[in-house]
Write a protein that binds this DNA or RNA. Structure first.
Length: 509
RNA sequence: GAUCCCGUAGCUCAGCCGGUAGAGCAACUGCCUUUUAAGCAGUGGGUCACAGGUUCGAAUCCUGUCGGGAUCACCA
């Protein structure tokens, strides 16, 4: 594939060739980085206590060596300034013709360096006339020649200019987005910190991190359509996991009392600002506990994570200040619906509930059971109104084929979801460990499947065999990491918390 | 999958009641040894997403395609 180069690219290619032909390495091997940009002010302040900064005898004593991209430059004849951006921030560099080897400033720096190039600088730290802390370069080396122009961001105190606004380019060329937008790098740094905080919390609570198959012969653990693939050597159909739930519970049967996995799940469904076909889910299973215990556990975990990320158990999301401080509200699904719609559906028959749904302008068709209807009403009238973290508890049994029946009502299960900023971020239940009940639930799922519900679960005989060996009472929890990351980083699209979101293939004309 | 909006220079955008493309930054050539959106003088750069149609003439109007965004539906 060949492509017409733009004039700026042609010039950069020519510079690369010139450098090679004149004994300069356009792609260096290493640079001894002693400091990062944001460390330099403190270093300088420590070296020059009040009043000693102006003393000429004291000058040139703070030596640093840094590396990064040259992002803006101001050339003034025989001297120049540029801003060097590294992972942590930026620092201004001052270079003078007479400090560099003969000819380097005019022939190499001025003619062959371009914005975006990665350079190494070493020298001493000083303060310019206008007060900006800068590095007076004693050595300057080109470490990586860029062959394409990088969008340059210029900024004043109040405003920044340029940058990449095109969402498509930012997602497709995330490297460019990250390279020029420190705030985007910060979002993904926060995501990483979120996951490591979660891991610390789980580890500290005696949970064992495990790995289970992503390629599964039988998929299960959620209601979703899978991706299908094929193993050649075994000539076998495999599914990309939609959940790791059934494997983790096998490990509980095996005698590990607390296990968790941070897993990529794959669901063959539509894309939206809340859905990416592959997404990250943390699931944890704790033996000898129930969903009430799990509510306390997840509440502590979320509070811990928020505090680790923001220094306090609060976060601003859009126009809302969300607090994880107080005990989270706990409301049953029926109470929540009654509060928002005025209809108490508890104990009502399927047809009575369908009548209410119609009054509430929800499309009802004959295949919808009472559980489905209740879920629809909840989705339409309640979920988006729950901004502060709220536990919704006690779901209809037909929505939850892997959850244990409620101890006080066999039509319900002991399940909760944590809703925050109008979206579900956790789902948990007391795990069903009666193999006979589980078999019946699978069978009713199988009937749904043959009735055309392609999201219904498959019968999993091996999982039933495991339950027949005895699984202790267990509480299980799933946390949507991407959704949680959206809240913790104040992003309103899942694509802004996934480094490389799925897009249609790029077409080149 | 449905509806609406968007696609113009490397980047950000203007032009869109039809007359053959513009600005700022970036680039190039000069001048300038403490600038900071550096400045001053000059120069180049576009199959206006793609393909058709209407028209004497289309970036502009119409149709289709591709890509993206938003909303809706299913799901976390």
């Amino acid at each position: 594939m060949s492509r017409e180069l733009t004039d700026q690219e042609v010039q950069r290619h020519q510079s690369r060739t010139w450098l090679l032909e004149n004994g300069f390495q356009p792609y260096g091997y290493a640079w001894d980085v002693t400091h990062q940009a944001t460390e330099i002010p403190a270093l300088f302040d420590a070296a020059y206590p009040e009043g000693t900064e102006e003393d000429p005898a004291e000058a040139r004593k703070v030596k640093v060596s840094v590396a990064g991209r040259m992002m803006t430059q101001r050339i003034m004849g025989k001297a120049a300034f540029f801003n060097l951006h590294d992972e942590t921030g930026k620092i201004q560099v001052y270079i003078r013709r007479d400090d560099l080897p003969e000819g380097y400033y005019n022939e190499v720096f001025k003619k062959r360096y371009d914005l975006g190039d990665i350079v190494g600088v070493s020298g001493f730290v000083f303060r310019t006339k206008t007060g900006e802390l800068s590095i007076h370069a004693e050595r300057l080396e080109l470490l990586t020649k860029t062959l394409r122009p990088l969008p340059i961001v210029k900024e004043t105190e109040e405003k920044s200019y340029g940058g990449l606004e095109d969402k498509e380019l930012r997602y497709r060329q995330r490297y460019a987005d990250l390279a020029i937008h420190p705030e985007v790098r910060e979002v993904f740094r926060k995501r990483s910190q979120l996951i490591s905080a979660m891991r610390r919390f789980l580890d500290a609570n005696g949970c064992l991190e495990v790995e289970t198959p992503a390629l599964q012969p039988i998929y299960g653990g959620a209601a979703a359509r899978p991706f299908t693939t094929h193993h050649n050597a075994l000539d076998m159909q495999l599914f990309m996991r939609i959940s790791d739930e059934l494997y983790l519970k096998r490990l509980i049967v095996g005698g590990y009392d607390r296990v968790y996995e941070i897993a990529k799940n794959f669901r063959n469904e539509g894309l939206s600002r809340f859905h990416n076909p592959e997404f990250t889910m943390m699931e944890v299973y704790v033996a000898y506990q129930d969903y009430q215990w799990m509510m306390d556990f997840v509440e502590q975990m979320i509070r811990y994570i928020a505090t680790e990320l923001h220094g306090k158990p609060e976060v601003k999301v859009g126009d809302h200040q969300i607090s994880f401080t107080e005990p989270f509200k706990r409301v049953t699904m029926f109470e929540a619906i009654a509060q928002k719609t005025g209809h108490n559906l508890y104990g009502k028959t399927r047809d009575e509930i369908a009548e209410v749904a119609k009054q509430l302008h929800i499309e009802v068709d004959a295949s919808m059971g009472s559980g489905k209807l209740i879920d629809e009403i909840f989705g339409a009238y309640v979920e988006h109104t729950l901004i502060q973290p709220t536990f919704i508890t006690d779901y209809p049994v037909e929505l939850s084929p892997l959850a244990k029946r409620h101890r006080n009502d066999p039509n319900l299960v002991e399940r909760f979801e944590l809703i925050c900023n109008g979206k579900e971020i956790c789902n948990a239940f007391s795990e069903l460990n009666d193999p006979i009940d589980q078999r019946e639930r699978f069978e009713s799922q199988t009937r749904l499947k043959s009735g055309g519900d392609d999201e219904a679960m498959m019968m999993d005989e091996d999982y039933l065999r495991a339950l027949e060996l005895g699984m202790p009472p267990t509480a299980g929890l799933g946390v949507g990491i991407d959704r949680l990351a959206m809240i913790m980083t104040n992003q309103d699209s899942i694509r802004d918390v996934i480094l490389f979101p799925l897009l249609r293939p790029e077409v080149t004309h």
